[in-house]
């Protein structure tokens, strides 16, 4: 469904992604782990073309989207839960969701409507009229996920969705992503939280200095003390 093939991405002269390849299958979660600054967020930004790859290719459902504008990629069925949440603080909770709404492709059995998303996040339903900037951190993270879901994506890009959340809310998030996968969603998850990634992912990759240095199942990574110690500091 998503096929990233040998992408090289720069910020100006800064050479960040130095040939990254990975694939995400439908109804699966692929996690990318690594320390701060190794290029995980850049990988997400490359896929959604906020910072397009200078070389290499990004295929989404067999279409080459490398040179597409971001809005067209998102419209084609990709949702984004960005790092730092990036809700729109001058909009109400309802407006945050309304502008993101997009009709589902016809083959989706139960598309995400505003109502169904609010059933999933009752805390947001109570605060629809509030300014999104007044929500707590956990509520803002829920709003970011809800905002991505009402766009009815088939692939979800999640950049550190557990960052700064309490253990209780992290547990909720775990249930949520596993539930989304059960409904057929593909998820590319970038994380620093090793335990969370090992718990939910079908495949894990470890990045260092713009390259992927490990790829395998969560069990294989968990067993590889050298990789964990060298690249993840655990």
């Amino acid at each position: 469904m998503l096929d990233v093939a040998d992408v090289h991405t720069y910020y100006g002269e800064g050479y960040v992604l130095q040939g990254v390849s990975l694939t995400v299958e439908p109804a699966s979660i692929v996690a990318v782990l690594g320390r701060n600054g190794v290029g995980k967020t850049t990988l997400i930004r490359t896929v959604i073309a906020f910072t397009p790859a200078r070389r290499g290719r990004v295929m989404f459902e067999d279409r080459d989207i490398t040179r597409w504008p971001s809005y067209r990629i998102a419209k084609a069925g990709m949702g984004l839960v960005p790092q730092g949440r990036r809700i729109f603080p001058s909009l109400s909770v309802r407006e945050n969701l309304e502008i993101a709404q997009r009709a589902a492709a016809t083959d989706i059995a139960e598309p995400w409507s505003l109502g169904r998303v609010l059933d999933l996040f009752p805390a947001l339903a109570e605060r629809l009229r509030n300014g999104a900037g007044t929500l707590s951190g956990g509520e803002q993270q829920m709003l970011t996920v809800a905002r991505a879901l009402v766009g009815n994506p088939r692939l979800l890009l999640m950049d550190e969705p557990t960052e700064g959340l309490s253990p209780h809310i992290v547990a909720e998030m775990k249930k949520l992503v596993v539930g989304l996968r059960a409904r057929g969603m593909a998820i590319l998850l970038v994380e620093q939280n090793l335990a969370f990634a090992l718990d939910v992912a079908d495949r894990v990759h470890v990045m260092d200095k713009g390259k992927i240095v490990f790829g395998g199942t969560p069990a294989e990574l968990d067993a590889d003390e050298t990789i964990k110690k060298t690249y993840l500091g655990v």
Binding site: I48, F50, P69, S70, Y71, R72, A74, K75, L80, P82, R86, F88, P89, S90, L91, E95, N96, E98, I99, A100, R102, R147, G151
Partner: peptide, 25 residues
Amino acid sequence: TTLGAIVRAGMDDEEMVRGLGINVP
């Protein structure tokens, strides 16, 4: 209006609005 909300959202974070599939250009 929803279009007005899109404009205000664009003032907050134009890149993120593009990430929602909205034709910001």
